[in-house]
Design a protein around this nucleic acid. Sequence first.
DNA 1: AACGATCTTTACGCCTTTTTGACGTGGCTT
DNA 2: AAGCCACGTCAAAAAGGCGTAAAGATCGTT
Lengths: 229, 229
Amino acid sequence: MVGAKILIIDDEAPIRKLLRVTLEAHGYTTLEAVSGQNGILKATMERPDLIILDLGLPDMDGVEALSQLREWCFAPIIVLTVRDDEAGKVFALDHGADDYVTKPFGMGELMARIRVALRHVGNQADEPVLVIGSLTIDLARRIVEKNGEPIRLTPIEYDLLKTLATNAGRVMTHRQLLQQVWGEQNYETASHYIRIYVGHLRKKIEDDPNRPQLLTTEPGVGYRLIAHS
Amino acid sequence: MVGAKILIIDDEAPIRKLLRVTLEAHGYTTLEAVSGQNGILKATMERPDLIILDLGLPDMDGVEALSQLREWCFAPIIVLTVRDDEAGKVFALDHGADDYVTKPFGMGELMARIRVALRHVGNQADEPVLVIGSLTIDLARRIVEKNGEPIRLTPIEYDLLKTLATNAGRVMTHRQLLQQVWGEQNYETASHYIRIYVGHLRKKIEDDPNRPQLLTTEPGVGYRLIAHS
DNA sequence: AACGATCTTTACGCCTTTTTGACGTGGCTT
DNA sequence: AAGCCACGTCAAAAAGGCGTAAAGATCGTT
């Protein structure tokens, strides 16, 4: 991908400058952020094709930033760090990082790893916007629209819809939904929540909430959001 | 991707063994090749989901093997090597390698990098769909169709059909079915359930429920779902 | 302090699924 | 031929899942 847009999240000015100069010499365009919050904001606004994230940020834990980015952002993320412990690497890689480079690093290697990461997404041009029937879900802006009209959703309603939508077409069991939306809970008491919030969601997204077309019940198993269509 | 098939191309037996044991402990299935030629052959024959390639091969240059694999093989390739020169890394990454790990490496890190690589191809991997005559069973989506028409099944009906279908062609005894579907029970009382639910299933999947073609009775033993068509 | 929005809890009616029980059939043995 | 056993079907009872409404509880904001 030529001329890809790359976001650099790092608090150290010299590193940022080094990266910026090198990347631009290779034909990429760059964005910079000096903190985690700022980085997440820039990622939301600018939709970069790739993100270079330094884990040693002043304002928040690097892995926390990683997790927040991965909630909606599909762009590859290359983690940069001075720490060389294996546990940290594994943790970052399992939380959404696509690669992990330890400082001090060779610029040539980093550039090659960037090319690999961009090769992976190369053609598919992933817009973080899901479309299900007349419903559009913009994960980055956290906006849900039905026939172009924005829909107000409470946090839990949104998380529930997001979980269903990112797995559109397949059944999400009660247990899976509880774990994703509420974060692990005792099953019996909580399985009731789901019915209530599915009811709320249907009132907001279905044409006829009594005869659900998008969000269907799989008796005894869970719920399913139909795929694309 | 659980149970992915991983091909190990390495001429050193101890390394192969270490990788095999670790990978299989993580639930993967493994293949092994001791040379480049052999590796390319095995990749052609077995279509692994991922390849671990040691660059220090006796019979051919590692990058040459890499290039030959990439001519037709889209599975992710993780390169393993003792050399730590940056030029080699860049060369390998630019010639189709998806990742590059330098020996001695941490097993945890390698496993994490394997998970990342499999995550990239994960969603586009073909789903397991069983086909029995005019019946299709999509295990991932939990959808059963007969002549293209979806069929509604209750949880027990579905579990029963799934058990029979994953063992299509062979007889499932009453005891096996009870254990799979109901989860161990006293045999005498429960063997009755099976007849009832087999009856339900036949009504839904057979053309003529009175003359079963797909789901046949093995008197005194159990039931059998015919294999494929 | 009061308000509004959201989340949690409680209650209830409906419906599907599961279990239970009863009965008929056909084949095999005695 | 009678009796037994495994199989198949039917239908009623029991259990439990599903959906809705509405009353507390919680939190942040004005």
